[in-house]
Design a protein around this nucleic acid. Structure first.
Lengths: 219, 219, 219, 219
DNA sequence: CATGAATGAGTATTCATTCAT
DNA sequence: AATGAATGAATACTCATTCAT
């Protein structure tokens, strides 16, 4: 049994190494240009071993994507107790931005989008499990804020998408068009401005602790 | 000269046929999977003729993209005279949506995004000439509405991106994750909701002719 | 008839332009890499016109070669009257060297040799009409020198090849291995040394006007 | 390790088969006309395997050339002890002729020369490692003969090239102009005549064991 | 169980030659 | 007679996947 355990752990190690290498290569080269042989070399395993773990290039890619989203998707629940609506929303947005930038989510998203014609199921799954699931979390939070009286009653399912759309405009969209798009210095101010806009519509208080954001916003 | 004219017209015809076929194949298969031979066959020319017109696969793809954007980018100026802010913004949004859906812009965008690692210049150019240029047009219009007193004075360069972000969330974003994403039936209502949100923040009048949109919005 | 003459002269002009362009391109790129389209462009004619004059690439190449050799092969007769054997042989060798270097003969030779597998007849013809014919001329001259008593009686058909072999070693051989091999500064001294060696064997006089060549020769 | 050894031997076998096939095809068709697919077929491997062993057509060709010269270049040292100058030189010349004819060196040389425009480095290397190196060996031998008193003191670096030039005239030169030029029956007599000429200039003894070569020489 | 050599189908690109005007 | 656009066959090279050891 000790042997079996040992073997299993070795196997798991290799699997992790393959996933790491594959992520790197897929992100750098895109799906089509990524070569299985290079992934194997980078992971320091033989191609045969690679195929022992993942049936095909497609399977491997799907695993890379799942793996990347597994790290992120649960972490967006926040405790609203003792925090203003603004603070809560800012925290969530900051978390989201962190994930996009630090986890190379934009690069990954780009590859997933690229493979829509040949892997439509994967893209749909990513959309559901990542995009829509986040909206769900956000909506739950927003509804809690409404219940607490920090936000006016409204259709939260629509408002969260408005908010998300505004934030993505700065956090995701430019990253789709450039490799390695990094967090600009004024990112926080831009996100603040989105939340301000949101609170102007749905907030119950005049403009709680509103920073004079208008002068900070430029391009 | 008759000969030259004849040849030119034949050549133009073939060029157009190639572009059409290339667009179709690129949109269907993505860049990497698209085969020059198939494009040639679809355009009913030989591969050599194809290469007479376009130096390489990359060049051809760039031409397809330019071609697609040429059809759209000039058409977003609207006359605001005699129209309410809401009407003006709705018209622009509708125009944008039309372009995205009818011109297969989402599919094209996906392919451009896919090629960021290998054709970063093309992507940057698309981002500039298409995305940013549209924001410029929209900003001009918004500033005119401000000048007319329909909107409150504000940083229009930021607000147009907020508006665009909200609209894209419904018009573009889902289209990146699915082949042939078509305009959903409730698209107009969703766009209306975005504009309502925008006018709630920047509008000068209470809520001019506001439709009760909230009950129409679901998923 | 005036018209016919005009046309003919135009045609001849074009033919000459094609030959000139073809020679240039063939010498620069070799046979296989030379492109008919580029030759036509360089000659400022259409490809169709090119094919009107020369049936095929092979035909054109053969014509280029014939043309090149036509300019040179008749000019090696020299008048021995009033000149020493040394002077006569030096003149001939100098003439030969001039032809090889100025007429780009080495480059041409290289292309002919390259095409032996696909154009054996052409190579054989070049060998006969150029190499062997020159030997014939040289032999005639040598026999005249023998008759005059400047050289000892011997098998001139063999001796001329020995002389030619020695000279080629310096004049032709290195040129086959390098593009654009130019006449080195010490070429004359090297040729003199070959002729000295020749005269040591076949000369009748001790060493008529022998320059102390040994110190000049190095590599 | 048994596995590694096995694989290595299989790999070496394939590599050798590829080199053999490539040599054959290159010699037969020349560089440009030779097709990698045909070489692979002839070697009974897939094209991919071929490319595993040799990065490109150029690399393969260079390897073929190196391989051919590796077989020959070390073998030209001869022991002069107890042999007359004539015998020594004859042995060397015979060795050289054997290499040229048996090793298909003339055919190979032709292909190398053909590729001068596109692979100048390879040609230069062949010239240095093969042509010039041989001259060096020959010069060493000649200087030993001078030291022993069999040849008169002279500039050996020049004289060996004269000798080589004379021999090449018969052994190499015609072979460049015809595919599969084989050793003619009178080759030995022709080579003898070259050595006779050489000894007439540089030999110290009247004409040791001189065969009456003059009647044997024709064309 | 791991290996890495071998596969063969697939692709972008070139070029000698023809033909409708 | 001259044009130059069009052809289609040919070719170097790549890569996901398999299999004998």
């Amino acid at each position: 049994m000790g042997l079996a355990t040992y073997r299993k752990s070795v196997s798991e190690t290799k699997r992790a190494a393959i996933l790491k290498a594959a992520r790197e290569i897929f992100l750098r080269d895109g799906y089509s240009r990524a070569a299985m042989a290079e992934i194997a070399r980078e992971a320091d395993v033989s191609t045969a071993t690679l195929y022992k773990h993942f049936d095909s290039k497609e399977t491997l890619f799907a695993a890379v994507v799942q793996d990347a989203y597994r790290e992120t998707d649960t972490s967006m629940f926040v405790d609203i107790a003792g925090k203003s609506a603004r603070t809560v929303l800012k925290n969530i947005a900051a978390l989201y931005a962190d994930q996009q930038f630090d986890g190379q989510m934009n690069d990954l998203l780009r590859v997933v989008i690229a493979e829509v014609p040949s892997a439509p199921d994967l893209a749909r799954e990513v959309y559901r499990n990542s995009v829509l699931k986040r909206y769900g979390h956000l909506q739950t939070t927003v509804e809690a804020l409404v219940a607490r009286g920090d936000l006016r009653p409204h259709d939260a399912s629509a408002s969260v998408r408005h908010l998300a759309g505004m934030v993505k405009e700065f956090v995701v969209w430019p990253g789709l068009f450039a490799l390695g798009f990094a967090r600009p210095g004024n990112m926080d101010a831009k996100i603040d401005a989105c939340i301000d806009a949101y609170l102007k519509i749905y907030g119950t208080r005049p403009l709680e602790s509103a920073p004079s954001q208008e002068d900070k916003i430029g391009t």
